[in-house]
Simulated scan of single mutants.
Amino acid sequence: MAVETKKPQETTGLRADARRNRDLIVAAAQKLFLEQGVDVPLEEVARRAGVGIGTLYRRFPDRDALLRAVGEESLLRLVDLAETAWREEPDAWHALCRFLRICAELRLGALPAKLEPHLHQQIRTGRDLHEMRQRVIAVVLRMTEQAQADGTLRDDIGPGDIALLMTLQIYTPPDMPGGQAMARVLEIMLSGLRAGSELTLPGAPLTGDDLRRYTAVRQPSAPRTHLDE
């Protein structure tokens, strides 16, 4: 059964024009964060979105609120694309390959990697972002386990390894067409994942338990007082 993809709760109840402005701002921020980093001026985000800076601040009172919205949208999109690949492809291997290709081509995994240091505390102490992240993990785990059961994915690969590959960023030499470089590197990567390779990988695979432990919700530490000393 596909996971239902829901829009963030803060979009419910908005007028159509307000929702459209919010979506334009988030989409512009996603692109600019990838291009220039998360410290890009908010005025530039507003300009790219085609709205006034006052409109941006009505929807997002500060940079942290915008970062959080971009993180939510990114995670929801990852879930949606993974579930669509699982539903439409003939088997788990092809679903996994499709998902990893999309992550690399659209740099979908790279954006959460940029956002995570800034949302680190919210992800580990807040339920909503944590639950979205767990949904991505669940889909990746399902594809990995089924592809290995089918004998198409090598046994010494874990879902944590797949999660690392989701953040793959490919440098394109100036004299090579971008599409060609992307396609070549992706096929090299996928060939290395396929069962039957005699290559021995260093270290141990990153398992589903590793991923869950890393993304577990953690309560913030209580401030120390003189009574603790």
Rank of each mutant, 00 (worst) to 15 (best):
M1T: 14
V3H: 09
V3K: 07
E4H: 09
K7P: 10
P8Y: 00
E10N: 13
E10V: 14
T11A: 04
T12P: 07
R15S: 15
A16D: 11
D17W: 12
R19W: 09
R20Q: 04
R22V: 03
R22T: 04
D23L: 07
L24M: 05
L24E: 05
V26D: 02
A29Y: 04
Q30M: 15
V38F: 07
V38P: 10
E44S: 08
A46D: 11
A49Y: 08
A49V: 02
G50T: 06
V51L: 00
I53G: 00
G54M: 10
L56V: 00
Y57L: 03
R58G: 07
F60M: 01
D64M: 13
L66T: 02
A69C: 00
V70I: 04
S74E: 02
L75R: 12
L78C: 02
V79S: 01
D80M: 13
A82L: 14
T84P: 00
T84H: 10
W86R: 14
W86L: 11
R87W: 10
R87M: 07
E89D: 13
E89Y: 13
D91N: 10
D91E: 06
D91G: 04
H94W: 13
A95D: 03
C97H: 12
C97T: 08
R101M: 11
I102D: 13
L106M: 12
G109S: 13
L111C: 08
P112F: 14
A113W: 00
A113M: 00
K114T: 13
L115T: 03
P117T: 04
H118N: 10
H120R: 12
H120K: 10
R124L: 09
T125A: 12
R127P: 02
R127V: 06
D128I: 04
L129Y: 06
L129K: 04
R133A: 11
I137N: 02
A138Q: 02
M143W: 04
E145G: 10
E145M: 06
A147L: 07
Q148I: 09
T152W: 14
L153G: 06
D156T: 11
I157W: 01
I162Q: 00
M166G: 03
T167D: 07
Q169W: 14
I170H: 04
I170F: 04
Y171N: 15
M176E: 15
P177R: 15
Q180M: 15
R184P: 05
R184Y: 05
R184G: 13
R184E: 14
V185T: 15
E187W: 05
M189K: 08
M189A: 08
L190F: 11
G192I: 03
L193M: 06
R194K: 08
S197P: 06
E198D: 14
L199K: 12
P202F: 04
G203T: 00
A204D: 12
T207F: 01
G208M: 00
T215D: 09
T215L: 14
R218P: 01
S221H: 07
P223K: 10
R224F: 08
R224T: 11
H226I: 11
D228T: 05
